[in-house]
Design a protein around this nucleic acid. Structure first.
Lengths: 154, 154
DNA sequence: CTGCACATCTGTACCACAGCAAATTTCCGA
DNA sequence: TCGGAAATTTGCTGTGGTACAGATGTGCAG
């Protein structure tokens, strides 16, 4: 970044955009709150992104006790959204994976979020939209590098 | 937007940025989870943004029963974060406002979020950052117009 | 003044979630 | 083989969020 002034402007603009995107995300998650609770959905997302995870790592990712993770998985199994599989290499471990039903649910949330974002994007002037893509990619890349905070509570 | 192709690229880029910003927001909120729960914090945010709100409107904004809103306010009052004030015009109504302590808490969260965003922004190439501000403002404005979804669960 | 509607609060009940402690099964190194 | 560590599960307990129904107090129209 060149000047502090420009940086402040960008931070402010991102704060504003952040509110919009968080609200969009909250709505998309709320659309499946009849099927699963917020905690259960967070577990689904972790399982989706870390295929073949066990209870321990799941609990770490969620920042909760292992017993809590066990019971979250219990409920998700009961709803037919995930499967418990014994690891043949290590029978102490349980591997948790999404069922097709569970995958459909997480995909539905993402799709709903995409739809809302697309609706907004279509209202934007073309010239602004054109320059935004590379800038956002750059932002995403910049975010991946630093990781200046603890991961537990993400 | 000009072409569908460009629109899809932008939606994808925004989905990526959205994940970053949601994670940043989640961390900033988690930093005060010792003081208040997530639901209580959501109430604080509503009260902060809609100064002089009553229990009914608060419950509508949160999408919960009025009794739930009453009890959330109970707890927030107990923690010294909000004040109940009898509306002199209408003694049926209770006006809820943030105490200075409550305001400090919500501000602290925003500040933490700004700090994290600033850290990311400083990693970006200057040329990308320069064009991003106007584009993001345009995005924010575009989001305000449509409101294609119900507000209750925001 | 009376009755109805409104705003809030209270009682009750239920479920999700959280952690701690203990039990069980399994793995692995000595 | 034996003992400790690891992974999961289960029992127990507490807190919080939520809704429904009902009580209380207040404003307002007739």
């Amino acid at each position: 970044m060149s000047t502090d002034r420009e940086a402040d402007d960008l931070v402010t603009a991102l704060l504003l955009a952040s509110r919009v995107l968080v609200a969009v995300t909250a709505r998309s998650v709320a659309s499946v709150e009849d099927a699963v609770t917020l905690t259960q959905f967070r577990a689904l997302v972790v399982i989706d992104s870390h295929e073949h995870t066990n209870i321990n790592r799941l609990s770490e990712q969620l920042g909760v006790n292992t017993s809590t993770a066990t019971r979250s998985v219990d409920q998700l199994v009961g709803k037919g959204l995930v499967d418990r599989i014994q690891n043949p290499r290590n029978r102490r471990e349980v591997i948790v994976t999404l069922t097709t039903h569970g995958k459909q649910l997480t995909d539905a949330v993402t799709e709903r979020r995409s739809d809302e974002i697309r609706t907004i994007v279509q209202q934007m002037p073309a010239d602004r939209a054109a320059v935004m893509v590379s800038a956002l990619k750059s932002f995403g890349e910049a975010a991946n590098e630093p990781i200046p905070v603890r991961l537990a509570d993400a």
